[in-house]
């Protein structure tokens, strides 16, 4: 593991863009809203499920947003690691797109999928005296995930409850690169005089679970038209908890790029 981070400068910290705050409050608010909607809309859901013909469902396209903060500082002891010093204590805006293909769909649905995301925390470099420079530095991360997912979509189909719990596990491949004002960051090792480049790849795994809310119950007629025109059978709003461990499976010489975070988004079945 890394060494102690004990000499953090005490100069005012100017940090890059920070992310959202109060995850738990958002989660509670969403959960409350979903429960209320569940009661009010169960009747409508029954009508939707009882409708006639619809196009076959083979795939799902998902767009996710959230706050992501790579756990790089876990390599260091102390309160403020290099990630916090440069990019601040908050997370950064994360976006991800995922495509899933249904392998089996009977009592729930089993799918495989691939997802690509992006996050880019940004901050300011440090001068020799420890104060912030005007030069920006950022860490760009391009996660790619390979998922195996199970969606329990029996609730809306059989019980007229517009909720779909799901669970996902998978393997991750993260590409990352660090920019300084002059381009890709470099570091000259004092021991070996080797110039290291601040870019690379890191492997890992993840597990995620969430609940999707079937939006079709809000506008059944529109959803049928949407299906007829575009082939999108169902639309969902969802919240997901993601735990990712991305450190080359525990390697001591790799970034820990994983995080545990809440993601929100829209999913479309077609």
């Amino acid at each position: 593991m890394g060494t102690t981070c004990s000499n953090s400068p005490e100069a005012p910290v100017r940090i890059g863009p920070t992310g959202w705050q109060g995850r738990s409050r958002i989660l509670l608010a969403c959960a409350g809203t979903l429960v209320a909607c569940l009661i009010l809309l169960s009747a409508t859901a029954h009508q939707v499920s009882a409708q006639g013909l619809e196009s076959p469902i083979t795939s799902e396209l998902v767009v996710k947003f959230g706050e992501y903060r790579a756990d790089i500082d876990s390599e260091f002891e102390g309160t403020e690691g290099p990630y916090t010093r440069m990019f601040g204590p908050g997370g950064s805006f994360y976006v991800e797109m995922e495509y899933c293909y249904y392998l089996w769909r009977h009592w729930g649905a089993l799918s495989v999928g691939v997802a690509v995301g992006f996050v880019s925390p940004s901050g300011y470099g440090l001068l020799a005296d420890g104060t912030n420079s005007v030069d920006e530095t950022d860490l760009n991360v391009l996660p790619t995930r390979f998922n195996l997912a199970y969606r329990f979509d029996v609730l809306p189909r059989e019980l007229s409850i517009p909720l779909v719990p799901y669970l996902t596990v998978g393997l991750d491949y993260y590409l990352w690169w660090i920019n300084s004002a002059a381009g890709i960051a470099t570091y000259r090792s004092p021991d070996s005089e080797v110039i290291e480049e601040g870019r690379g790849q890191t492997f890992g795994w993840h597990v995620a679970g969430g609940v999707q809310f079937l939006l079709d119950v809000l506008a059944p007629r529109m959803s049928r038209t949407f299906d007829a025109n575009t082939g999108v059978n169902n639309s969902y709003l969802f919240v997901e908890y993601l735990y990712a461990d991305v450190s080359d499976f525990g390697s001591d010489s790799s970034f820990q790029l994983g995080d545990s975070t809440l993601l929100f988004g829209l999913a479309f079945e077609f």
Partner: peptide
């Protein structure tokens, strides 16, 4: 000279050295 994130990380004792040669066990 300005210390960017990668330099600072390495100066603080971070072990990631970059590159695309896999660090997989």
């Amino acid at each position: 000279e300005v210390i960017d994130f990668f330099e600072y990380y390495r100066q603080q004792g971070g072990q990631e050295t970059g590159g695309y040669c896999s660090a997989l066990p």
